[in-house]
Amino acid sequence: MDILTQQLINGLVLGSIYALVALGYTMVYGILELINFAHGEVTMFGAMICLAVIGAFAGSGADMHGAIIVLFGLLAAIAVCVGLGFVIERVAYRPLRRAPRLAALITAIGVSIVLQNLAMLIWGKQYISFPPLLPLVRYEFGGAVITNLQIFIMILSCLLMAGLLLLIKRTRLGRAMRATAQAQDIAGLMGINVNTIISLTFIIGAALAAIAGVMVSAYYGLAHYYMGFMLGLKAFTAAVLGGIGNIAGAMLGGLLLGVIESLGAGYIGTLTGGFLGSHYQDVFAFFVLILVLVIRPSGLLGERVVERA
């Protein structure tokens, strides 16, 4: 039983990180129907910027509490990623808004390759370690262990997601975003500046990605220019699982994917009588995804969309 609790905790923490990144995918998709492949790379930039700032602080010899240094790093990461998200949309996606959708997908892949190699040029090829600025406290209950960092990640993700939901559902900006997602042309006619709304969507997504990037690097203790690829892929899977384009779906999909991976790695051996081991963890996750999509072709919370010609 304590093992199951532990696996659920593992899965939920991992899942809340996936969910944060998945939000960026789903928001962009909701409005542009574009898989923003470069989103994972924005996450990586967030982690890298934060570490660069932390490194600068360590170099300057300033005597400050670790958490404050990380906070500075986080703010810098958000600032840079917001700019990055804005520029990516402007340069790579806006010229293609009326182009075939696959063209934009290829630019997204191109941007992702560029960002990866740019990060490699700037920060080098080595893994960068996240210095132990945050004191780690372990809490044990009923055989399961949870750390203060894990609790913090879960709470912060929940707050951010709740905030985003409020923003989308309750504010004028949110209403404008929903309107743009539903019908861009008509939203334009209703006096909504569609370009601004799309830019803002990218900016919000990038800010969330920056936070997720810092979380990942602090949680696992390292960052690398290649880290965005897998994270992005997992988050995208999560977004599809929940129903891409649907904000609540991305959260649900993220949490679910985290738990599925955890339970998959933990129990797939027992489930298959030892035939398949934890190396089939991703197979299990994709299998669940395919099963969900076969039963509900638009994801768990996605609405049945009419294909646009």
């Binding site: 093992i3 532990q6 696996q7 593992n10 899965g11 923490v13 991992l14 990942v216 696992y220 390292l222 290649y226 880290m227 690829f229 897998m230 991976e261 955890s262 339970l263 998959g264 790695a265 933990g266 129990y267 051996g269 081991g277 934890s278 190396h279 963890q281 991703d282």
Partner: peptide
């Protein structure tokens, strides 16, 4: 147990 050369999260396999 098994992981991949891209992984960073090993909590699930370590828990087993």
């Amino acid at each position: 147990e098994f992981t991949t050369d891209r992984s960073t999260d090993f909590l699930a396999i370590l828990t087993s």
